[in-house]
Computed example of a mutant assay.
Amino acid sequence: MEKINKSTGTLYICGTPIGNLEDITLRTIRILGEVHLIASEDTRSTGKILEKFNIKTPQISYHRHSNTRKKEKLLEELKNGKNIALVSEAGMPGISDPGEELIALCIEEHIKIIAIPGCSSVTTAVALSGLSTRRFVFEGFLPREGKGRRRRLRLLKDESRTIVLYLSPHRVCKELKDILSIWGDRQVFWGRELTKKFEECWRGNLSNLLSHLENRKIKGEITFVIEGFFSEESVIDK
């Protein structure tokens, strides 16, 4: 059994809405109001939640550019008995998110960690996709640079499970063209701005999606789901 230092505070990993604030859980609201400090990836996004639910807990920024000193400060607060809520810009902290580093440090220091489950764009997109949900794999963002991106895609070409990716709105067409070139024309799901006012869901062949996006200026967060290689479990007729 893992050894936990009972004299420290607790790090709460708090899932928050991915767009619609009404998706927050009652438990998350309670914990955000009870902890001593909230470590936020984006203090502005978290601030909207705190304002809506009249939560007065102070925030400290914690994101991918946070230096070692910031991490050490949070660890020191926890060791001194303070309870801290870790909050991502949206969704579940630690999933393709800088929170994973703080979580790993807390494990090393035997600090108690409690997860408060919340929304995830990954599971939301998979549920909406109509593709096989029995087995799927999340690959996060593809490499920015074309050579590295194509190398990653070749490594995943024969993956039989449904694949979930985050796509960048700034290079989405380049990414989709590389996927089509290396993986072929498969059934896909495109989820943009999920749970938000201008949510867009699209299902069909990848080649048709590219035609649909031609000459469009893409904005917002994109979660992309594509069937695996020779998947026989897809519920979409081919």
Rank of each mutant, 00 (worst) to 15 (best):
G15T: 03
G94C: 13
S66L: 13
S231F: 06
G47Y: 06
C106N: 11
L11N: 08
E2W: 04
T8Y: 14
I29R: 09
K147F: 10
S211T: 12
L213Y: 08
L102Q: 06
I236T: 03
E100A: 14
P117K: 14
E72M: 10
E159F: 10
G19A: 13
V164C: 02
L74S: 08
R192I: 01
L86S: 04
E193D: 13
E109I: 05
L105H: 03
E41L: 13
M92F: 07
L50M: 14
F53D: 05
T16G: 10
I13L: 09
R134W: 04
P143S: 05
L78G: 05
L210G: 05
I179F: 11
L194D: 00
E72K: 09
I116M: 01
Q187E: 12
T46E: 09
E221D: 07
I31E: 04
T46V: 11
P98T: 07
L142P: 00
I38H: 07
K73A: 02
L210S: 07
L206Y: 11
L209G: 07
L37A: 10
L78V: 08
G81K: 09
F230K: 10
L102P: 04
I4H: 11
P117I: 13
E100T: 13
N80A: 14
F198N: 13
E89G: 15
K196M: 05
M1N: 04
S231E: 08
I13P: 02
I107F: 00
Y62L: 09
T133A: 14
A90E: 05
F53Q: 04
A127S: 14
F229A: 01
E89D: 15
R216P: 00
E159L: 09
H110E: 15
R154L: 15
Y166V: 01
E51Q: 13
F198P: 03
L102W: 10
V164I: 13
S160D: 04
T68M: 10
C14Q: 09
R134M: 09
E51C: 06
E200C: 03
V126R: 00
L32I: 04
R144I: 09
E199F: 12
T10S: 07
E221W: 07
K197E: 01
L37P: 05
L180Y: 10
R144E: 12
L165P: 02
